[in-house]
Amino acid sequence: MIGTSTCSELLSTRGASVATRYDRLLCARIDVRTEDGLHAAQAGARLVRQAVVAARAQGLRTAELTLDVGAPVTGAVLEQLRNLVDDVADVHVRRAGGTVLVEVELTPLLGRQRTQPSPRLGAA
Protein backbone atom coordinates (compact mmCIF):
# COMPACT_ATOMS: atom_id res chain seq x y z
CA MET A 1 0.00 0.00 0.00
CA ILE A 2 1.34 3.45 -0.91
CA GLY A 3 0.17 5.24 2.25
CA THR A 4 2.03 3.21 4.84
CA SER A 5 2.25 4.47 8.40
CA THR A 6 5.06 6.83 9.23
CA CYS A 7 4.33 7.79 12.85
CA SER A 8 1.99 6.73 15.60
CA GLU A 9 0.66 8.06 18.86
CA LEU A 10 -1.18 6.35 21.72
CA LEU A 11 -3.52 8.11 24.13
CA SER A 12 -5.10 6.29 27.04
CA THR A 13 -7.14 6.81 30.15
CA ARG A 14 -8.98 4.47 32.48
CA GLY A 15 -11.32 2.38 30.36
CA ALA A 16 -10.33 3.73 26.94
CA SER A 17 -7.44 4.06 24.52
CA VAL A 18 -6.92 5.65 21.12
CA ALA A 19 -4.15 4.72 18.71
CA THR A 20 -3.45 7.10 15.83
CA ARG A 21 -1.31 6.27 12.81
CA TYR A 22 -0.20 9.12 10.58
CA ASP A 23 0.43 8.09 6.98
CA ARG A 24 2.21 9.58 3.98
CA LEU A 25 -1.12 10.55 2.43
CA LEU A 26 -1.68 13.14 5.20
CA CYS A 27 -4.35 11.03 6.88
CA ALA A 28 -4.70 10.09 10.54
CA ARG A 29 -6.17 6.63 11.03
CA ILE A 30 -7.69 6.53 14.51
CA ASP A 31 -8.54 3.31 16.37
CA VAL A 32 -10.57 3.70 19.57
CA ARG A 33 -10.99 0.90 22.13
CA THR A 34 -13.20 1.16 25.19
CA GLU A 35 -14.41 -1.01 27.99
CA ASP A 36 -18.16 -1.36 28.50
CA GLY A 37 -20.13 1.48 29.98
CA LEU A 38 -21.01 5.09 29.36
CA HIS A 39 -18.03 6.50 31.30
CA ALA A 40 -15.55 4.56 29.14
CA ALA A 41 -17.41 5.62 25.96
CA GLN A 42 -17.22 9.29 26.94
CA ALA A 43 -13.54 8.95 27.84
CA GLY A 44 -12.84 7.27 24.50
CA ALA A 45 -14.68 10.04 22.64
CA ARG A 46 -12.60 12.70 24.42
CA LEU A 47 -9.43 10.85 23.40
CA VAL A 48 -10.62 10.76 19.78
CA ARG A 49 -11.23 14.52 20.00
CA GLN A 50 -7.67 14.98 21.30
CA ALA A 51 -6.29 12.80 18.49
CA VAL A 52 -8.15 14.80 15.82
CA VAL A 53 -6.88 18.11 17.21
CA ALA A 54 -3.32 16.70 17.26
CA ALA A 55 -3.66 15.47 13.67
CA ARG A 56 -4.72 18.91 12.50
CA ALA A 57 -1.83 20.49 14.42
CA GLN A 58 0.50 18.17 12.45
CA GLY A 59 -0.94 19.56 9.20
CA LEU A 60 -2.88 16.44 8.25
CA ARG A 61 -5.89 16.77 5.97
CA THR A 62 -8.17 13.94 7.07
CA ALA A 63 -8.82 11.51 9.89
CA GLU A 64 -10.56 8.14 9.50
CA LEU A 65 -12.30 5.92 12.04
CA THR A 66 -14.23 2.68 11.90
CA LEU A 67 -16.68 2.30 14.77
CA ASP A 68 -19.09 -0.45 15.87
CA VAL A 69 -22.73 0.46 15.18
CA GLY A 70 -23.90 -0.84 18.57
CA ALA A 71 -21.08 0.55 20.70
CA PRO A 72 -21.86 3.44 23.06
CA VAL A 73 -18.60 5.12 22.01
CA THR A 74 -19.91 5.65 18.46
CA GLY A 75 -22.51 8.26 19.38
CA ALA A 76 -20.14 9.93 21.82
CA VAL A 77 -17.39 10.18 19.16
CA LEU A 78 -19.75 11.66 16.58
CA GLU A 79 -20.94 14.25 19.11
CA GLN A 80 -17.35 15.24 19.94
CA LEU A 81 -16.46 15.56 16.24
CA ARG A 82 -19.45 17.76 15.52
CA ASN A 83 -18.38 20.09 18.35
CA LEU A 84 -14.87 20.61 16.88
CA VAL A 85 -15.91 23.58 14.73
CA ASP A 86 -12.42 25.15 14.59
CA ASP A 87 -10.58 21.92 13.71
CA VAL A 88 -13.10 20.00 11.59
CA ALA A 89 -14.36 21.23 8.22
CA ASP A 90 -16.77 18.32 7.63
CA VAL A 91 -17.66 14.87 8.94
CA HIS A 92 -18.79 12.13 6.52
CA VAL A 93 -20.52 9.15 8.14
CA ARG A 94 -21.76 6.01 6.43
CA ARG A 95 -22.88 2.65 7.65
CA ALA A 96 -21.28 -0.52 6.32
CA GLY A 97 -22.89 -3.59 7.85
CA GLY A 98 -22.21 -3.58 11.58
CA THR A 99 -19.76 -0.69 11.39
CA VAL A 100 -19.86 3.06 10.96
CA LEU A 101 -17.18 4.52 8.68
CA VAL A 102 -16.24 8.07 9.61
CA GLU A 103 -14.09 10.38 7.50
CA VAL A 104 -13.21 13.72 9.05
CA GLU A 105 -12.03 16.57 6.85
CA LEU A 106 -9.70 18.71 8.93
CA THR A 107 -9.60 22.49 8.63
CA PRO A 108 -6.35 23.52 6.92
CA LEU A 109 -3.76 25.33 9.00
CA LEU A 110 -3.31 28.77 7.55
CA GLY A 111 0.23 29.49 6.40
CA ARG A 112 1.57 26.11 7.52
CA GLN A 113 1.09 22.99 5.44
CA ARG A 114 3.22 19.93 6.11
CA THR A 115 4.00 17.29 3.56
CA GLN A 116 4.57 14.66 6.26
CA PRO A 117 3.83 14.38 9.98
CA SER A 118 6.41 15.65 12.40
CA PRO A 119 9.19 13.11 13.12
CA ARG A 120 9.09 13.98 16.84
CA LEU A 121 6.24 11.48 17.38
CA GLY A 122 7.31 8.00 18.43
CA ALA A 123 7.66 5.54 15.58
CA ALA A 124 5.32 2.56 15.45
Results as ranks from 00 to 15, higher is better:
25 L>D: 14
79 E>M: 03
37 G>C: 06
76 A>M: 04
92 H>E: 10
18 V>E: 11
18 V>L: 10
69 V>K: 13
54 A>Y: 00
35 E>M: 14
55 A>I: 05
63 A>Q: 02
35 E>S: 15
73 V>W: 00
87 D>H: 08
66 T>V: 14
86 D>H: 02
30 I>L: 07
21 R>S: 15
73 V>P: 09
49 R>I: 10
87 D>E: 15
84 L>P: 05
66 T>M: 10
50 Q>A: 15
51 A>D: 08
39 H>S: 15
92 H>I: 05
82 R>F: 10
93 V>S: 03
25 L>N: 13
94 R>M: 13
48 V>T: 12
39 H>Q: 09
52 V>A: 03
58 Q>V: 05
85 V>S: 13
92 H>Y: 09
89 A>L: 08
62 T>H: 11
77 V>Q: 05
55 A>V: 02
81 L>D: 07
74 T>S: 13
68 D>G: 09
86 D>A: 11
95 R>V: 14
67 L>Q: 08
93 V>A: 04
51 A>F: 02
43 A>C: 12
19 A>Q: 14
47 L>V: 12
93 V>N: 00
70 G>H: 09
90 D>Q: 06
88 V>I: 07
61 R>G: 02
43 A>H: 07
83 N>I: 01
90 D>M: 01
80 Q>D: 05
54 A>D: 13
66 T>F: 00
22 Y>P: 10
36 D>M: 11
23 D>M: 04
66 T>H: 00
66 T>D: 05
87 D>K: 02
34 T>F: 09
97 G>C: 05
26 L>T: 05
18 V>C: 15
70 G>N: 11
50 Q>K: 12
44 G>F: 00
79 E>I: 09
21 R>P: 04
23 D>V: 07
42 Q>G: 09
80 Q>G: 07
82 R>E: 12
81 L>W: 00
90 D>F: 08
24 R>L: 14
20 T>E: 06
63 A>F: 03
100 V>C: 01
63 A>I: 01
100 V>Q: 01
100 V>P: 01
40 A>K: 11
25 L>Y: 09
37 G>L: 04
79 E>D: 12
51 A>L: 09
88 V>G: 05
38 L>Y: 01
97 G>D: 09
73 V>C: 12
54 A>R: 08
67 L>D: 01
32 V>I: 14
84 L>C: 11
94 R>Q: 08
95 R>K: 09
92 H>A: 14
87 D>L: 03
45 A>F: 01
46 R>K: 14
76 A>Q: 11
49 R>A: 15
48 V>F: 02
44 G>I: 03
34 T>R: 12
37 G>Y: 01
95 R>P: 07
52 V>G: 03
25 L>E: 14
93 V>L: 04
61 R>V: 04
78 L>H: 02
27 C>T: 07
